[in-house]
Design a protein around this nucleic acid. Structure first.
Lengths: 194, 194
DNA sequence: ATTCTAATTAGATATTAATCGAATTAGTCT
DNA sequence: AGACTAATTCGATTAATATCTAATTAGAAT
């Protein structure tokens, strides 16, 4: 976890009204009016808080008829909650705040990339293909929504045939798509990737 | 967990330098000079940050010859980290932010207290005595240091014979004492109390 | 007791953040 | 298309917070 991210997350929760919002949302989606009502705040203020919560992917929204409903993303909350200790208590160099994977696993993956970080080609062996796909997925933010264009742009940094790879992401359950919006599959997220 | 506490905790971690301090301390105790050095800050600023971290019991200090060494309290960090999700995601009334225990267990304990909340007497059966002691200990803050006088004052709110009860806390490993400073035993803290 | 050094407190300044009222945007519904 | 309403953006105000320098305290060591 990056230092910035962690700080941003804590800032997001470092306000009583924002925590109240999360608690309210934990009992089910609410629209802006309801939130403003319950908290005794004006709509602009609620928007302000929601913006901060959205920045760290703790809430999403979905329009429904005339209202926009806000949803708590419990998986993201759990993820952050789990990460805090792991991020701070790393026996080793305190300097580096980045995650650095060092599995033999990584050796295999490395063979499919050029020294510039481009993907040479997608492995045909299922297991290796998954490794490569998961490796690519590390660059996708957990809990963030991407348009198809965003995803294409992202993949193109590694390989020109973005369409195939995007399809592989879906087929293998690494991402899922809903109304043209792509997102990492939260259920899959934390079992292979570290 | 109380709303205030949770907010205060997140405020404590909502600053990059404070997180860096925790990371540094996770590799072992450091004194103020070292911290100021590593962070490129002046001693007063370091004190400022340490104050905030101490307020939520994330660090303690101990004097050693000419320096004061600061220690990360990992157990407290883990505790908060575990509490976040539990506190926010409570299926039920979002209004009440307090923990309310409702075990049959509680029935037994209740019999030893008056309706005003005073302790009638300490049970003689070991099991019941422990229940009562643990119940009393809920009012003691996890990770906070208490002087003997503080402890006496606290116990006196429930019973005049503070000396006996204080001794029972120690005997039963609920608290431990070091140089006249009392503290909840972190190891014991989370197995019985909820 | 005096000196030395580390840590804290006090006071000042600048930055960030919370909140609101007014104006604007975005999408629904007739 | 036009009217309606929820949400957002804008601008301003006020409250917190991070940081420093200078002054002070608290122990340790001579």
């Amino acid at each position: 976890m990056q230092l910035d991210k962690l700080v941003q997350f804590h800032k997001a929760l470092a306000d009583a009204n924002r925590i109240k919002i999360l608690v309210l949302l934990s009992t089910g989606p609410k629209n802006g009016q309801e939130l403003a009502q319950h908290l005794g705040l004006t709509p602009p203020t609620v928007t302000h808080h929601l913006t901060k919560l959205r920045e760290v992917n703790l809430v999403t929204d979905r329009r429904e008829k005339n209202h926009i409903y806000f949803y708590l993303k419990e998986s993201v909350l759990k993820h952050y909650s789990d990460s805090i200790t792991a991020t701070i208590i790393r026996k080793g160099e305190p300097e580096e705040m980045e995650i650095k994977p060092v599995s033999s696993h990584e050796e295999i993956v490395k063979n499919f990339f050029t020294k510039e970080g481009k993907l040479k080609n997608l492995p045909s062996q299922r297991k290796k293909k998954l490794m490569v796909l998961y490796h690519l997925a590390k660059g996708i933010e957990h809990g963030k929504k991407y348009s198809e264009k965003d995803i294409n742009e992202f993949i193109k940094k590694f390989h020109l045939d973005y369409a195939t790879i995007r399809r592989e992401f879906i087929i293998n359950g690494i991402m899922y798509r809903e109304n043209g919006i792509y997102e990492l599959n939260p259920k899959e997220m934390w079992k292979e990737i570290k």
